[in-house]
Design a protein around this nucleic acid. Sequence first.
DNA 1: AAAAATAATTGGTCATACCATTTATGAATT
DNA 2: AATTCATAAATGGTATGACCAATTATTTTT
Lengths: 259, 259
Amino acid sequence: MTNKENMPYTTVRPRRISDAVMEQLETMVAEGTFKPGQKLPAERKLAQQFGVSRPSLREALQKMVARGLLVSRQGGGTYVSSEIGSAFSDPLLILLVNHPEFHYDLLEFRHALEGLSAHYAALRSTAADKELLQQRFDELVATYPATDPEKEAEADAAFHLTIAEAAHNVVLLHVMRRLLGLLERSIVDNLRSLVERKESRDLLYEQHKALLDAILAGDPEWASQMSHDHLVFVEDGLLELSKRETRVRRALRRVYAVR
Amino acid sequence: MTNKENMPYTTVRPRRISDAVMEQLETMVAEGTFKPGQKLPAERKLAQQFGVSRPSLREALQKMVARGLLVSRQGGGTYVSSEIGSAFSDPLLILLVNHPEFHYDLLEFRHALEGLSAHYAALRSTAADKELLQQRFDELVATYPATDPEKEAEADAAFHLTIAEAAHNVVLLHVMRRLLGLLERSIVDNLRSLVERKESRDLLYEQHKALLDAILAGDPEWASQMSHDHLVFVEDGLLELSKRETRVRRALRRVYAVR
DNA sequence: AAAAATAATTGGTCATACCATTTATGAATT
DNA sequence: AATTCATAAATGGTATGACCAATTATTTTT
């Protein structure tokens, strides 16, 4: 293994050869030695180049594949993923999503991030951003009459992600994208629940409109406030939905317990 | 391999034996068959139980170790991690951290989350929370005179994490914990930079104190405002530091280019 | 009872072989 | 010359068996 001494910001030397190899490969990907879509040398050749056994090299590659950095096909080769980080693999977040108790926390967090997005978007959005925002809003409104919650959820996510893009903070955008991915199903469920209550939908429209207006006006305080109002409304609805779901789950547990 | 048909929300069957094994082990961890801290059966035994080869079993375990779900020690065994998700493994976030251009975004995002924490902490903190907050604040202040930026960064993180705990939103807490882990080094650098400017440190103290007071008073608006003021201050400092670093990096690149 | 030595267990790495899939190459056909 | 088909080579996936290094358990000695 190559000597890693004298590297700036040296991390603790990994205990495993496979970790060391993975780090070197990740560095090569990050710095562009291997570009997205590019095919890596064959496993046997990489093992030889790194001076390790093929099983050890494979362990390193497997970890990178599992994290979405690499894609491999039996007989076809190993490639740098063209779309890095498509899956949020943090194990605790995955566990949280699967626990209804924390779903409310997740939704609250998401909407708080939206408030943040609104604030920065109001500060920083360009003319092009605003044009796109208007377009996304129109597309969202166009889904209201329909009874297709999945389509509406998609348009809703697009609208909020466009706000996040207009905030010009890539970390915020990245986290928002991941959270919306995780929440996709519960957003659909929430919208499905809202389908039944027209006055709630009217309010939803007004809130989205007010949010857009605040951003277009370039008023961060107003944008934050509008997002906050939206947040309170959504949380109330979700609390109600959550209570209902908890009752349903409890009933279902009794049904399954009988088996 | 066991039949996965008839499972609700069935995922696409993984192409690899190691992925299938990993999924089964994860399910066993999630449902409590293997509890945090518990030792897993030896690799040779697990391989036998799953009916796969030891290298394949190891590939599965390695992925779980890489994700923080398992911990293994040569000669000592493999254990379910007591603290799940200690490492934020999202590949894009890792790449972002390693790019100075996005560091500002990351810091901005973190401080925005702190504003959020402050808001909810003011709303929800219990008497016990407030007691702990006061204690953490005192410990932080105790580090000010010292010229140990690492110790101060640790106390600073502890203070802010205690606020996040008092917010009673586990997703927010989780993300804050991860971000602070990623930012550890740059926080240390920032504090090191602040060591030199006493008036900045006085201001930092006042901001932390005002933040604490707002939370103890149970005033979310005030807490948000205080956090916001703190944010603006820190961002200004970091912009300055970042500009300095960028110049340093550019100089360093020229030095390395000569080699 | 405590310490030291030894043995067993466990994870880490490796070499080699073989299987399954994909890709490249060359021959045959149109 | 272009296309198709058969074959070989390359590649990833899995397995077996061996050995090394670290840890833990057991036995022996003090």
